[in-house]
């Protein structure tokens, strides 16, 4: 099969982003500022872990280890997720803004993959894109309502945007496979996806009276796609695998 290495790299990026973001979302269970948000983050976590399973299953079909092994038995250095998703949940403002940035970015990528030349990826994108609408809708509604609600809400969200935006750009960190994937029609380049994402979120942020900050060059949050992660990822993996490490061969 042509472009196999590049394709696997893309699938790992997709799956790892969804798995780690899903795990972070699940950390809001029992802590949400209101019950509905607790439930929303729990549901989105469940969806995202589900997407990661679909992508890991595809990787397994391409010769990689089985999904549970890939998800739970790798060290941080082998993960291809962006550093953005591994950051701790911090306060609700940060988590909400991260959810807004992440889900619009995921949706932009998944929409593009609906035209992928790799048919299995195209099929999966078709399925996932239907569900991601709910994530984007939720993010947009909450961000708009809170940012337009009062000054306190707006300033807290603006602060979160200032912190999260440079990190969010790590979702589009270029990789050595970018051009190859674009030329093969598998996935557009990271640069073009980032541009499209910005075109989608900018009017929504303006509507919510929020603005995007300047980002230092080179982006200090790049590296995740190459396996360079923050210590937060290792901590997360330790927690995520606490049960499986107790009894690795247990059957559920």
């Amino acid at each position: 099969m042509q472009n196999l290495e590049a394709l696997k790299n893309l699938l790992y990026r997709l799956a790892d982003d969804f798995l780690i973001m899903g795990h972070r979302d699940s950390e809001w269970i029992g802590l949400g500022p209101i019950l509905e948000e607790d439930i929303a983050f729990a549901s989105m976590a469940q969806d995202k872990v589900g997407y990661s399973l679909s992508f890991y299953t595809l990787l397994h079909e391409l010769g990689e280890a089985d999904p549970d092994t890939i998800a739970f038995k790798r060290e941080a250095i082998h993960f291809k997720c962006a550093q953005f998703v591994e950051m701790p949940i911090q306060d609700y403002a940060f988590s909400l803004i991260r959810h807004f940035f992440f889900d619009y970015a995921a949706d932009t990528r998944i929409q593009a993959l609906k035209n992928s030349s790799y048919d299995k990826l195209r099929d999966l994108a078709n399925k996932i894109s239907r569900e991601l609408k709910y994530h984007c809708m939720h993010a947009k509604t909450m961000v708009t309502q809170i940012a337009k609600g009062n000054e306190d809400g707006n300033s807290r969200l603006q602060e979160a945007v200032n912190t999260a935006f440079p990190m969010a750009l790590s979702l589009f960190e270029p990789t050595e496979f970018c051009e190859e994937l674009a030329q093969a029609g598998i996935c557009p380049t990271e640069a073009s996806l980032q541009k499209e994402w910005l075109q989608r979120i900018t009017p929504l942020l303006i509507e919510a009276s929020l603005s995007l900050p300047q980002v230092p060059e080179p982006n200090p949050y790049y590296g995740g796609r190459k396996g360079y992660h923050t210590d937060y990822l290792d901590e997360l993996i330790q927690e995520m695998t606490a049960v499986i490490r107790l009894e690795p061969e247990a059957v559920w």
Binding site: E36, I39, A40, A42, S43, M44, Q46, D47, Y134, M137, H138
Partner: peptide, 13 residues
């Protein structure tokens, strides 16, 4: 609509 997420993935409030 109150919330696109409910007690299970397939339900909204």
């Amino acid at each position: 609509i109150k919330n696109p997420f409910g007690p299970t993935l397939c339900r909204a409030i």
